[in-house]
Design a binder for these strands. Structure first.
Lengths: 162, 162
DNA sequence: GAAGATTGAATGGTCAATCTTA
DNA sequence: TAAGATTGACCATTCAATCTTC
């Protein structure tokens, strides 16, 4: 098969390792902050955010799972905790009885509104505010390029240059 | 509480959400690839990489845990699986008997050498090769800026003077 | 006392299987 | 048959506690 391996050169390796490093460290730090100051895991927070932005603050379980990059069972269990704490309720769908809606409660919305300023401040302090405008713009553009395979790369000429 | 919240503007939010999105999606995809094609979890792979780059392919448990952003107990359990599979061995330290070394075995090295080309190819395909040189350079710079608080931000007295 | 490593209890995630409904 | 949600079995990770050694 592939006889030669295109290893990462110095800059590529630096970018990749930094990316992994920053994302893991940042996740751990933000999780810790949110958990100790507001009793919310990062996953809980993400659920509340997505629900709060949805029409009527409700989403089908399967749609919510997709938005959160979570498996169906993962979301079920994640929701159990939020339901137990009264931040979210489950509601059956009348038109399709296979479906369950996750609905943000008033208390859930308050908890989110309470936590959000602190969380945003942390995101600023640990990420956004360490970048100037140009860096931020470039970063956003690069990440978009990663998410969107863009136009097909010129396949014939890619592999040869050292 | 803080009277005003500096919410994220459109571009800031876009950069932050893309960052979270890309890192979670990428992690899941790379993990899946590595697991199905080489029977290695991403965490296993990271252990092997760090050991392979260390002098004599060995590291103290506590140092390895720090490099991997893993708790001591997390590393202990992670290592158990690798030891069971014969990819790593534990060795006591003669000069400080509190210390245990994690040492990469020949088989561990082979498994890593076997998996690395595929993994690097996936990292290229899903990340590196979707960026041009300029984007890559900017990304690496931005991530370094995030990792290193650099000089104090020019934004008023944001830090510690309330 | 502090550092290094491990263990126990608890939590959060996945996959495979199941149950209901479309 | 397939889609949606849940459950059971299992694995990974963390914190707190413990044990040994410095």
């Amino acid at each position: 098969m592939a006889g030669e391996v295109r290893w990462l050169d110095e800059e590529e390796a630096r970018a990749w390792r930094s990316f992994v490093d920053v994302s893991t460290a940042l996740t751990a730090e933000l999780e810790h902050d949110l958990l100790t100051r507001h009793g919310l895991a990062l996953g809980d927070y993400a659920v509340l955010v997505h629900l709060s932005e949805a029409p009527e603050r409700r989403l089908r379980m399967c749609d919510l799972a997709a938005q959160l990059h979570l498996s169906p069972s993962g979301l079920t269990r994640r929701l159990n905790g939020l339901v137990r704490d009264g931040l979210v309720v489950r509601e059956p769908c009348s038109s399709d009885r296979r479906v369950t809606y996750a609905v943000l409660t008033e208390e859930g919305f308050r908890r989110l509104a309470d936590a959000a300023p602190d969380h945003v401040a942390e995101v600023r302090r640990r990420f956004i505010d360490r970048l100037d405008r140009r860096q931020l713009h470039e970063l956003a553009g690069a990440l978009d390029a990663v998410r969107t395979p863009a136009a097909a790369a010129p396949r014939g000429t890619a592999g040869s240059a050292p």
